[in-house]
Amino acid sequence: MNAASDRHAVVIPGGNYGPLAGLLAYAGEAAARRGAHLELISWTPPPGRPLEERLPWVREQVAPVVDGLAAPLLIGKSLGSFGAAVAAERGLPGVWLTPLLTVPACVDALRRATEPFLLVGGTADDFWDGALARELTPYVLEVAGAGHGMMVPGPLVRSAEVLGQVTTAVEAFLDDVVWR
């Protein structure tokens, strides 16, 4: 039996960023090209709830999907990085794109992780803290000047190059750490 056929990846969207948008599409494709079956979560977050209070809601969306799979990789963007709580509870690896490193509940979940995770963020993102990211994990991609959508100022090709950097980091993490 091919070990890759047992691989699963759960793609967790952001607040306004679906599971097939930019960064998540490429991160998911990186997992799929390594034989992972993708589980895409789609949602509409409840309005009016402060960001700090959304962890339980995200857990309610992610846990039932994860519970049906054998040791999946979790891939989340922004609000989806609250999925780190599920990863920590179940001992699962993660790829967290523009995680909410200024929100204590997210940081607490990352601190409880027992499996490796990759953090990706930009220095112009108000939710990013590069020093904290490097304290939490040795697997960090920090892009100078990138905002919360990992876009950088200047010609659009520079932002496309950032997408390439993120994809390369995700592929290396999957090949060298998660699915050696």
Results as ranks from 00 to 15, higher is better:
A4N: 11
R7Q: 08
H8N: 14
H8C: 11
V10N: 04
G14D: 08
N16R: 14
G18F: 08
G18A: 12
G18D: 11
P19N: 08
A21I: 05
G22T: 13
L23W: 11
Y26Q: 12
A27S: 09
A31M: 07
H37P: 04
L40Q: 01
W43V: 05
T44A: 15
T44G: 15
T44Y: 14
P45D: 05
G48Y: 12
G48S: 11
P50K: 13
L51A: 05
W57P: 00
V65N: 03
V65F: 03
V65H: 00
V66W: 03
A70Q: 09
A71Y: 08
P72C: 09
P72T: 09
L73N: 07
L74F: 14
G76K: 06
L79R: 03
F82Y: 12
G83W: 02
A84I: 11
A85I: 02
A87V: 12
W96Y: 13
L97H: 07
L97C: 03
L100D: 02
L100C: 10
C106K: 04
V107C: 06
A109G: 06
A113C: 11
A124S: 09
D125H: 02
D129Y: 07
G130W: 00
A133N: 06
V143I: 15
V143M: 09
A144H: 14
G147E: 06
G147K: 03
G149A: 09
M150Y: 03
M150C: 03
P153E: 14
G154C: 06
S159F: 04
V162W: 02
L163H: 10
Q165K: 15
F173P: 00
D176L: 13
W179E: 03
W179N: 04
